[in-house]
Each structure stands twice: as C-alpha cells, then as structure tokens.
Design a binder for these strands. Structure first.
Lengths: 312, 312
DNA sequence: GCTTTCGATCATGAAACCTGATCGTTGGCT
DNA sequence: AGCCAACGATCAGGTTTCATGATCGAAAGC
C-alpha cells in the first residue's frame, strides 16, 4: 500500500474544498477561512494534483463555479473525514480535561423521574469512581446536538434517532395510555377506546415534541384533527388538568403518576405503537469503560422495570 | 467551528502514528515509510503539538515504546480516516479510468448459475450503457477483500458478512435440502429426516467454505461427527456422486439441479436455517447509479425467484 | 466599450520539512 | 565497572512548500 502523493493530503485542503462548495466561490471561501483568494486557489490546485482529477469547474469570468462529479464524490469523503477529526478532537480534549472519571448524560423528564433514580443508585454503587453529570433538557434535539458536538457522552432519546453519526441501543418500550378523569365513561369500557373516540375528546397534551407529533399523526390518521385544548411541558400539570376534567390525555405510561386518584389510566393495547426509549451516543467517538458500564446498567435496570409494569 | 491547529494535520502524521504502533519503534517505522528516524520523530512531535497530548510513551534507551491512552484512541480515529482516504482514492481512480459505465461484480457458483442469467438479461435491457464485469471466485473471502480494496463494486455473499467496512442487502433465503439417490428410503419418509439421521449417512459435500462450515456445525450439534466421504467444489460432481450412491448431500436448494432424475430432493423444513444470499458493497465508497440500479434489479429478480421455487 | 467579478499566475519572504550528524539515556554484555 | 548497542531527541542545513500581494485574463452586465 503506498498512498504516495496522497500522503501530502492536508486537512486544510479538504476544508477548503468543503468551504468552496458551501460558499460557491473561491474568494468567499478564502475570506471565511482567513486566507487570501490566491492561497485557496493554490490549495485547490494542490488537491487536484494529489487526486489527479479536476474537482471544480471554473467557467471563467463572474459565472458561478460548480463541483465536478469527482469533486462531489470527494466532498462526501471530506465531510466524513472532517467529522471524524472533530470526534477525535473531542476525545482528545475530554482526555486533556481529565474526563476519564466523568460521564455527561442527557435526559428528559419522563426518564428522569422513573428510570434514573434506580439506575443512578445502582451505577454509583458499582462504579463509585465515576462522577455523573446530568443534563436535562426539554428540547430533545438539543441533546442530540450536544452528543454530536461531543458535549455529552450519552443521552437518552426516543428512538428511532434521526440520521447522523449515532449509535443506539433500545432500553424499553413505553406504551401509550389514555389518561381520563376518574369515573369517566371511557374508563368503564370493556374494550380499549378507538383512536377515533379519542380524537373526538378535548385533549390535554405535552408541548410539541417528537413523541407528541407521533401521537398526533396517529390520531389524525382517523380523519379527525385532534382538538388540543391545552398543552404543557409538565407531567403534573397535564395530569392535574385531566383530573380536573379539562380533557383527556394520551401519554406514555412512564410519565403517568398512577397513584393519582383523580384520574384513571386506560390501556390502549397498542393502538398507538409504544414510545421506544433508548440510549444514544456518538458513533465515532471513544466509548469509555464508564460509558459502556452505564449503558449496561441502564439495559439491566430497564429490563427489570419492564417486567414489573408499575405494579407498586 | 475552528479546527485551528488541527488544520495543519497531515495524512502523513496519522500514517506515521499507525506505522509506529505497528512496528513498535520509530526507527523501523521510518525505514518502512522511507523516511529518516529524525523525520518520524519530528512528525510525531508535530502531531503531539497539534493534539496537545503525549501520544507515545518513550521510556528511553532500548526499551520498547508504547501508546498512551490518548495515542490508542487517536490511532483508532487515524485508522478510520486512512480507510476513508483509501476509499476516496479508489473512487477517484475509478473515475479516472472512466469506470462510470462499468460495474465489477463478484459472484460464486450457485448464484452464477441460478440468479445471474435472469438478472443480467434484465439489467442490460434496462441499462444498455452499463458494462458488467463478472468475477467468479471459489474463495469467498477473496471477494470481500476485493470489495474492501475497491477492486469490485459489488459482490454476492452469504450473509451475515464479517466485520468490516461493508453495507449489505438481503436478496433471498436459500433453504438447505437433502439430496439423496433416487429411490433412497430417506426420500420415502413422510416427515423430514432429523439431523441425526443425516449425520449417520455417508456424506458428500462441498469444500470448506462459510456455508459448509455452518452445515457441519449444525450436524455436529447432534453429537455425532458427520462422515464426509468426498468433497468437491463442483455442484455437478457432488450431485453425480449422490446419484451414484456414494452418499447423500446437504446442499442449498439453488445449487441443486432438480431435473436430475438420478437423485431425489428432500425438504428439510428448516431444520438447518437457510443460507441467506445478499449483495455486499463498500460502506464508504461512492455508489454509482449503475450500482444502485443493479442492486434494485437484483432484489426484484430474487423476489420473483423466491415466489416460484424452481417450479419449472 | 467600460466596469465588475472571479480565478489563475508570479515573485517573494516566511514557515515547514527532511536529512545527516550528534547527543543523552538505558539495558545488556563482558 | 565499563563498554557497547539500541533508541529517540535535537540541532544545523539545504530544500520544498505555503501564503501574500500584485497583476493578468476571461466573461457577464450595463
């Protein structure tokens, strides 16, 4: 194997290619990167000499440039390589900061209240040396972005995960249930209520989020647009409103406080596919022993939790 | 995002790190790469300045060096990046050679005789501009290696595929059947023969290969080591020997010539899980429109083939 | 036809790179 | 102990590479 000329390949070259593709011109790319136009021009010339193919079509004059076929293909590789370098960089600075014994984990509310207590207790018993830093966010997407940027080592997430440099593991399936005021006729049915029956009710729900959108689109598939009369980010508020008779709520079982006597919980028997909760981490980043152990413990805890479905 | 110092990162640096890890010494790495020991030493110094961490532990004197934690982690990234660069390089030389209209496909015997004829006819009707270069090999592993090296664009393969930079798609499940001499008592049974019954017979089989090993380990799981009296690479030979009464053969249905009246084919009803045939390509390499189309056609053809199980 | 926009090219000074020689350290050998 | 061999670090040097700033050439818009 002799990468010969390719050995001189510089990250700088790839970044230049990418920036030019972004900006659509040598000059603007140069400006963004803090170089001269001349420098960029020469960098691309070198890159083209290395790969042996013209990468950018320069029509001459003020006409816009465009990538050749080869340029487009190489660009995709360049992006992958740059991403990998960013991952390496994140690994290095984590190491530099002495993060070996620290684990930064992203969570959201329902995981926080039901899964984390047991999980954290168990984990810190088994791994007393590891400090866990939790980061709870109402905005799920933010958690993923933090994983991508290397600001979190792991995050909980409702699967599936959008395209990106992620690896995942499934932890548990959290079925959706209907929460109704205690004594509501919907709780007395011998059968689970249909989606249409639900869509006809006044609804109380969570603010827009992945999981909620999923529920809404399922309800909409009945042909009737669901009528949300109130939304909140807080489980307690939602459940309080249901208890007060404001409406009914479709919620993942884990978010429901089943000890609340003002409401009744109705099984939907899978009429809406369950919310799948998983753990997500960066595909390209180093997985510390602590992170591996955390995932393992999480899997174990969730398996137990699934076996005793809130049978208090 | 400012990769700052990392912009100066050179492929050369990463290769140096990798080679040192391989060789265990600066000097030998230098020799292998055609540099001076001094050059290598300086390259690593630069690399360490870029990442800001010591990557290699030099105990001094004639003692062997070792990678630090940071070095090991960075090495993994370096390998990934180098692999990606090789993929890019392969893409570029394919482009340079004007391979846009050429598709190099790896196959093996059973696919070659049963699937390819229909597939190729259909494909070249739909895509007359694409030239297909077939590469048949008795050694399956070789096919995979050629894909990894970029010498093949696609290859057929019996899934699952070993770890490596591959993407796959399943084409069809090819059940194992028992081939016995015509009139054999095994063909008269009302039920499929058990694995134990098979293991007691004299067996004729293919030469060692993935699929065959799978069959053997299944037969061995009965506690009786199967008694192979003859092996051949050629379907016809194997079947001829069975017809001649030398033994019986466990073979994937696709490899069997069902028109041969000297043998009878006995369904095993899944006692051995079917051989899964799929298409494999390089995860990191560019997928040409021709390759995509080939995969699509292959999937379609195999779906039809599965529907009419050799009902000639 | 003039101007503007853009990339290519060229000369120049600065920085990076490789080589060859030399040095410091350490383990093994006598 | 003393010498030697193996190994990486370091230094001086010539060479290559790199970025700059100025200049040139092509083409579109007015």
């Amino acid at each position: 194997m002799k990468p010969d000329r390719w050995l001189g390949l510089d990250l700088r070259h790839l970044v230049a290619l990418k920036t030019i593709a972004d900006e659509g011109s040598f000059g603007r790319a140069a400006e963004r990167l803090g170089y001269t136009q001349s420098a960029i021009s020469q960098q691309i010339a070198t890159l083209e000499r290395i790969v042996g193919l013209r990468l950018i079509e320069r029509p001459g004059g003020p006409r816009p440039i465009s990538l050749t076929e080869a340029g487009r293909i190489l660009l995709r590789h360049a992006e992958a390589i740059e991403a990998r370098i960013l991952a390496a960089k994140a690994d290095m600075s984590a190491l530099e900061a002495g993060d070996a014994g620290r684990l930064r984990v992203g969570t959201f509310q329902s995981v926080g209240t039901r899964v984390l207590p047991t999980l954290l207790r168990r984990f810190s018993e088994d791994h007393p040396g590891v400090e866990i830093v939790l980061r709870e966010s109402a905005d799920e997407v933010e958690l993923l972005e933090m994983v991508e940027r290397g600001e979190l080592d792991l995050t909980f997430w409702t699967l599936p995960v959008p395209a990106g440099p992620y690896d995942t593991v499934e932890l548990l399936r959290d079925p959706y249930v209907l929460v109704v005021p205690a004594g509501s006729p919907l709780a007395e049915l011998r059968r689970p209520p249909t989606l249409k029956e639900i869509a006809l009710q006044p609804l109380v729900g969570f603010s827009r989020c992945n999981a909620m959108d999923e529920v809404e689109s399922h309800l909409e598939s009945t042909g009737r647009t669901p009528n949300f009369v109130f939304r909140s980010d807080n489980n307690g508020t939602v459940q309080g409103l249901v208890g007060a008779g404001v409406g009914v709520s479709v919620a993942p079982l884990l978010t429901v406080d089943e000890d609340d006597e003002s409401v009744a919980v109705v099984d939907l028997q899978g009429r809406i596919p369950p919310r799948v909760i998983g753990l997500v981490w960066h595909r390209d980043r180093h997985r510390s022993p602590a992170a591996e152990a955390f995932a393992k413990t999480a899997i174990a805890v969730c398996r137990e939790l699934a076996r005793e479905p809130a049978a208090a």
